[in-house]
Design a protein around this nucleic acid. Structure first.
Lengths: 325, 325
DNA sequence: GAGCGGACGGTAAACGATTACCGAGGACGC
DNA sequence: GCGTCCTCGGTAATCGTTTACCGTCCGCTC
């Protein structure tokens, strides 16, 4: 691969002139510049980003570490980050921590070692440690879930209130015994949604299970609840992936959503309006979360002294037929 | 941030010894090694990956450039790549080209500049040019769609045959006028699926529309077909994202899948069994495609002289109720 | 005890860019 | 005509590693 010295040699100038020409930082004699451009062209020269970044001590790459690449909520968020980063000339690399603290640590390490310009992170849990990145001065913005013990920028959703409202919606719809299926303990969104649910039904009426944020776990957990001697007649579900598991459990028992078991799920997946009956959901502004996070990140890259802010966005209940008898 | 020289100074050794200790390539006096480790610990030393990669002329990062991060087919594929890369010590960065040749070019450029170890790519179209990467010696594996004009490794699905079989399945199911909704011209999978469809119905009975691989476009295109004086009584749909648009179009017209319009869609999305009636699909082994692609890529990184292979995997028709009256 | 070999650690040269610094030369004012 | 200033381009230092090369020292053998 051609290096800058090859180009310099071919154009009969110094490497400094090549660099200046190609980066346009300083004016260069048009005659020389033309020779440089021609030489670069002929050699198929492409600057080595590693060397450039090493020298410049900066990269135009953002890392986005999400906890589940198969969850539409996160992919939508990813597009938000990407669209905003793009226009500012940043590239986004997406890392999938898979709700796994080990993988997450590994990717944080990669981000650290590769010296990315900034990180958008949905922490897998309370053990997530970004102290190293912070120490190095790499800005980190937390999304979806707060980062415990640090005062960085965050973009969250008032998910506790949303859960409470959704539960009340079921109760006012005539359901008497509302249950809840939430994610793993320690994952903040899961805890908050459960708390919001409890706010609405009261501790004494709690009827809940936790599972991984996956269809399979949710199917089993929903099964447990439905097979209780006095089963719930409605369910609040903590995300759309789990909703799939719940729908499977219902189908296996010949139960119809809405009529037999009222359903509200977090996250408005594209298929939610299409199933029968259409699924009532708590829609989170995933794309917007991504955009705002990217904005905060870029702002902090530009000015590291800004005081940290926490943006809290609102979720919106979209009422369809699964929460109606 | 602490550098290797800081560590060396603190431990009272040379940078070479620090490097040797930390990389474990060569044996180091245990006494010295202990001092190095302690010093590194105390300073919170994290090697600069940029410098390391620059020197080593290699990185342990794979780029995966997919054309739609919101399409479950690609996210599943991504997990396949990731899982396999992970165990070999590679990290995967995911780039979303969004079916946009410009974005794709930009990401290919990033991959080139950052000197990633290899690239898995689902090309947006025939204009995709990987000559630069090839010239540099960066291995590229094409997935889902072939890379025109180059003889690299590829992992494909015999999608033409799958489309033909799916169409025949509809025809033998009693549907008389099968239509087809495919993706943009120039996208190989879209072209192949259309061809497979034509294989089955015959050119003279063609009833098809093309649209972007998105719900919105599919909704409109399906609308056009359904509003024809003599509309199709069944549809072959080229991917699951488009299926959503088609289902919307059907619902808007009060038509029921299966009974009124037979439906087969490519890609087995998690929600496909849940809608009413459950959607018949052509399931592609997305995860497996990703795994195989990663395998080929790693094999080629290890030995660049291997002759290129094209793996063709099979798709499988999963018959549910949407293709039955 | 001389010679030899092996193990280990330091010195310094890479990797490929950017950029501080300096010197040369031209323009311009007095 | 000379001094000054400005512009431009080359030289070389620098970013933070890895690693080729070499010298030293120790132990072993004859």
């Amino acid at each position: 691969m051609a290096t800058i010295s090859d180009v310099a040699a071919r154009a009969g100038v110094s490497t400094a002139t090549v660099s200046r020409t190609l980066n346009g930082k300083s004016t260069v004699d048009p005659e020389l510049a033309a020779r440089v451009v021609a030489a670069a062209e002929e050699l198929g020269y492409h600057p080595n980003g590693l060397a450039r970044n090493l020298r410049r001590q900066e990269t135009a790459v953002l890392a986005l570490i999400i906890s589940d690449v198969e969850n539409p909520f996160f992919t939508s968020l990813a597009r938000g980050v990407e669209d905003l980063a793009q226009v500012s000339g940043y590239s986004v690399v997406l890392c999938n921590s898979d709700e796994n603290a080990d993988k997450e640590r590994r990717y944080l390490d990669v981000a650290l070692q590769e010296r990315v310009a900034g990180v958008v992170l949905s922490p897998t849990g309370p053990a997530t440690n970004v102290a190293l990145l912070r120490r190095l001065g790499t800005p980190v913005v937390a999304v979806d879930r707060p980062l415990t013990g640090t005062d960085g920028d965050q973009v969250l959703v008032d998910t506790r209130r949303a859960a409470r409202d959704a539960t009340r919606h079921l109760m006012t719809g005539g359901y008497r015994r509302v249950g809840c299926l939430s994610g793993p303990a320690g994952v903040r969104t899961a805890d908050d949604r459960l708390t919001g649910y409890l706010d609405a039904v009261g501790e004494e009426n709690a009827l809940c299970r936790r599972a991984r944020y996956r269809a399979e776990g949710a199917r089993l957990a929903a099964g447990e609840l439905l097979d209780l001697p006095v089963p719930p007649d409605a369910l609040l579900i903590a995300n759309s992936t789990m909703a799939i598991g719940v729908l499977e459990a219902l189908a296996a028992r010949g139960l119809r959503p809405g009529r037999d078991v009222g359903l509200v799920s977090f996250d408005d997946a594209p298929w939610a309006p299409l199933i029968d009956p259409p699924l009532t959901v708590v829609a989170q502004p995933a794309y917007e979360i991504g955009r705002v996070a990217a904005q905060l990140l870029l702002a902090r890259i530009a000015d590291s002294t800004r005081t940290a802010v926490t943006e809290t966005l609102d979720a919106r209940l979209i009422e369809r037929q699964s929460s109606r008898r």
